[in-house]
Write a protein that binds this DNA or RNA. Sequence first.
DNA 1: CCTTTTATAAAACGTACGTTAGATTATAGA
DNA 2: TCTATAATCTAACGTACGTTTTATAAAAGG
Lengths: 186, 186
Amino acid sequence: MAPSELRERIKEVAVDHFNTNGYHGSTIRQIANEVNCSLPMIYYYFKNKKELFDEIIKIDYFDLLSRQSSQLQSEKIIDLYTEFVFKLNRLSDYERKVYRLGIKVYLSFDGDEELKEIMDVWEQNITERHHQIIAPHLSHTQDPQIIVRTLIHLLEHLIESIVVKNRFLSEDEIREEISVILHDRN
Amino acid sequence: MAPSELRERIKEVAVDHFNTNGYHGSTIRQIANEVNCSLPMIYYYFKNKKELFDEIIKIDYFDLLSRQSSQLQSEKIIDLYTEFVFKLNRLSDYERKVYRLGIKVYLSFDGDEELKEIMDVWEQNITERHHQIIAPHLSHTQDPQIIVRTLIHLLEHLIESIVVKNRFLSEDEIREEISVILHDRN
DNA sequence: CCTTTTATAAAACGTACGTTAGATTATAGA
DNA sequence: TCTATAATCTAACGTACGTTTTATAAAAGG
């Protein structure tokens, strides 16, 4: 599992193919071809096609999620969440493709049940986290359950727009939409 | 193109396979097998695999979208949109799978560029429609652009939850979230 | 009742897939 | 320098794919 330049390059190309053609539509031959290595080299670094796919999700995707969510702490929550989403515009090509592939698996559009279950556990944790972050900032007239749920739904959609649909969202756009939900309105 | 029982059955099974395994992961043999017909029968009713996939999107998916959006007219917009989303819980199995497959194509997770372009045109039209529906109901202190944008983003997420993630959303949940965005707050 | 059309299937064609065997070259440690 | 390990490739194996050919039953029309 030591990092080799070729090994990393294979993952880069694989992520691209899995994204574009799906697991079944991607072939080891095409990947080897684009990497400019022979076909068995892929089996030298990865047990088989499935483990190549799984490693991308289990390691690269969850690393990315961890890094992103670790910055979820600040006083001003509108700024916090705006930045949280806005930063996705600046992901590297590779990171964005990994993220996109992860969402594909999360929606059960690719990958298998095992990966999906790992993601469901993650989702549950991150939802609790959002509750803890947001609840203290809400006025007593607001129902925290509803606000947090609605915010999470909006956030997930914004993330999907940037990462999956490859759109650029400006900081203003993001802040405006988050503010619709989080602004106090007594 | 006349409706034959077998022809419809093939589409039913195909939609299921395309959903679960993607275009490339689905095989004509598997489909024929599950339909309990011989393999060439699929070529009797459809030119090839691609046209089978395309027909599901171009005809069944867009029929579904049309039927759904045609009911977008009412005085009370919160009720209107609540009902609009809530009704998705009651889609037939086939309709839900068609819808799910359509979203998969919309997110460029399957299908080809041609189908995606048809969807982008549709999206543009439906966005304008939402603006016309919502704008008259907003107070002058609200920026219609932002409210409509945010609402559409929330709606798309709710639809995705029901159709793609296969969740049941209660009428109350839906109304609560839509109200967070649409409630007047002067 | 014969003929045309519609509906069906068995078998095969060529191709491409995931994967492995076996051999060869480069690298590095003693 | 010799040897062991790591990195690489050519070639092949068996399988499964999309699609077609060809033939045969069933249905319909006159």
